[in-house]
Every structure is written in C-alpha cells, then in structure tokens.
Design a protein around this nucleic acid. Structure first.
Lengths: 193, 193
DNA sequence: TGTACATCAGTGAACGCGCGTTCACTGATGTAC
DNA sequence: TGTACATCAGTGAACGCGCGTTCACTGATGTAC
C-alpha cells in the first residue's frame, strides 16, 4: 500500500516523536521497536523503511528531544530557564523531560552517534545559558561560561536526584526548591530585584 | 554438591559484588542473570538459591554500592569528598561509581524496593556532606542542609554530564574542574586557605 | 494527457537469539538418634 | 561418637517470551514513453 511521499515523511516524524517521548519515559531498553510502532499507530514491519536500526532511531529521537527543548528555551531569561528546569512540572513530565536528566546516565553506553547527539545537546544548553546570563550580569566571558556550566550541572543533578527519591515527595520537592534558590543566587539574581 | 554454610554466604556476597560492579558499568538492563553469574564464577541455575528475582538483586546490589561509598567517604573533609566525586577518576571508573550518578536516571523505573534504596542512598550522602560542612563553617543547621543539597546536586550533575560528553575529553574535563571550583567556593572554602 | 510498469511504504508472519525463570539431578553438609 | 537420612547450594538443560530484524506480499504512487 504505497502512500504519498509527504505522507511517508509525516509518518516518519510520527515515529520519531513517539520514540522521543517513550525513550525518556521508559529508557532506551524499556521500549521495543514493536511496541513503539504500535504507539505511533503502525505495524512493526515498516520500521526499517525509515530507520536502519533501533540504534539509529535512538540517536535521531534524542536529537529531536534536545531540539524541542531548544525551541522552548530560546530567548527566555535565566530566571525562567532555571525555574522551569528545576520545577515539579519538569520532574514529573518524563515524556517531555530534558534528555540529559532523563537519559544522561545511559548516554555513555549508546552508539557513538548518540554520544555525539548528547554532547551537542549539552553544548547547546551551555550556550543558551551563557546567552541568558549576558542579559543580567556584567561578568567576563570566562566567568559567564563557568557560571553556565555550574548552573547546568546543578540543574541536571537536582532533577536526577529529585526523581530518584520521588517516593518521598517532601524531600523530592525540597531538593528542587533549594537548588533553584541556590542557582538563582549563583546566577547573580537577588530575590525581589 | 552441597557446600558449607559459610561458603554459601561468601558465594552470595561474590554474586552481589559482581552485580554491584556490572550494573553500574552496563546498566540494569545491560547485564543478564546468566552473564552475571558467569562473571561471579558460577553457573546461572544457582542464582535463585540466593535471590528470588533479578529485581531483588538490583535492590540489594544498589544498596551494597551505596554502602561501599559510605565507607570510602566516612570522616573525610568536604574538600576531599567533593574533590573525589568530581574527579576524572570517579568519572572514568564506572564499576565503582556513585550509583546516583551512574544509575540515578533509571532508579525511578525500578521496583519500589530499589527506589527506597536510592532514596536512602541520597539521604546518607546528604547527612555525610552536612557532617563534613560542620567542620569548616559556622552556618546554621538550615543553611548547612541547603548547602549540602546544592553541593550534592551539582556533583551528581557534573559527573552525569561530564560522562555524557566523554567523546570530547577536553569539555568533559572542563566540566569537572569548573564545577569542583564552583563547589568549593559554594562550600565556603577559600583557595589557598 | 493517457497508458504500462517500476517503486516502495506499509502489513503481518517468521527468524534466531538472549532473556528471566524453572526443573530434575548431584552429592557433600547438617541433623536426628 | 557413629550411622542413616534429610537438606540444599550448585549444575546445566529446558521453558516460554519478547526482542531486533528479515521477508514475501500488497497496491497506490511515481515515472517513462
């Protein structure tokens, strides 16, 4: 049942979007090709018309996930970026989570292609944070980069450990709040300014 | 071939130690029961004489991994703790890594038993860091706890993202160095003091 | 523009493989007398 | 203390299952004339 070229390309996008969501939710090994295709609305056999392997899909879906975040963050101030990252919303919304927090620990065990995607995702985050810092402070370029790295590391770590203690919701919330406050301070933002 | 009770208990420990090492190295889904038993020096059939399921092993091995770190960290100063955590050594030694950094992202997808182990591992880290801060500063109890949470989150995040960009060793090293410097500053330690 | 044929996205059965788990079996250890 | 028997840690074959991947097939789309 051959279909239109545009339709086929839309379908590939549907698969990619389902994969980007499901990998973050269940982990790279937590969802199989057949289940994934079913969630995207297809039978599993057609998968290899679009991708040469699950490995390739993992790289492409990770790239898409980073791009979505890129778009959501573009042009926002440092306060908004950090507030969103260390929010209960972000912690609880795994399908839309930052891949660095949801899958960063597994990234090193994936293909070179996927590792490159994660590296570029991290670099992209760092330059967006650096850009957001430019608006609020008069730091040197070096200090701005150092601050961006510190802020991003703390944000990722806060979400990772906040999620890994989620059975204790009070502790989980406390971690996010305390790290957000510490981060805003570290970014040179005074409360009530 | 029945064996001595003590020998049996030693063997269980061998399995646990192999598991603690291999799960951190390859991920919970990256190593199977059969391979794991072979690495521990046994055939796979005996596994269920010691554990009722792989799930149970995951919880027990994670607990052992946290305990090892606990022992390594006990009584050390904040500078030593942070310096070790954000070292190239820790980043590159996955089999002995802190589970929060190596497996924290997957912890939320494991059994309740395992989630409890991770929660207690994090709590244990926080109280050790709080304890180490007591030696160096005169902060209030509340401020000490907040600082401990901030420091631990940054340390975990630094290691996670440092590992996920390991194809760019310069960037990977930079992240560790910059976060360590930022952390020591945050902990109230002046360089050359 | 109309016709004839090649292309290929999608389907669903089938492949081999490794997974977690179970089982019958072995024989030294632990226990009851 | 010595003998008879039950226990159980370890072995390796076997189980069913889901995995990633391949394949023959379908039929509308795209293309050549």
């Amino acid at each position: 049942v051959r279909i239109t070229k545009e339709k086929a390309s839309e379908n590939k996008q549907r698969i990619l979007e389902a994969a980007a969501r499901l990998f973050r939710e269940r982990g790279f090994d937590g969802i199989g090709v057949a289940d994934l295709m079913r969630e995207a609305g297809f039978s599993h056999g057609g998968f290899y018309n679009h991708f040469s392997s699950k490995e390739e899909l993992i790289a492409a879906a990770s790239a898409l996930a980073f791009e979505e975040l890129d778009a959501d963050t573009q042009g926002r101030g440092i306060e908004a970026i950090l507030g969103r990252y260390m929010s209960q919303d972000h912690r609880d919304d795994l399908p839309r989570s930052c891949p660095a927090a949801a899958l960063g620990g597994d990234a090193g065990r994936q293909s070179d292609q996927t590792q490159t995607v994660f590296k570029e995702g991290v670099l992209s985050w760092l330059s967006r944070i650096e850009g957001a810092l430019e608006q609020n402070s008069s730091l040197s370029e070096r200090a701005r980069r150092d601050t961006a790295i510190n802020l991003f590391a703390k944000a990722v770590g806060a979400v990772v450990i906040s999620r890994s203690v989620s059975s204790d919701s009070q502790l989980s919330d406390e971690i996010l709040q305390v790290c957000l406050a510490g981060s805003l301070n570290e970014a040179g933002i005074r409360p009530d300014e």
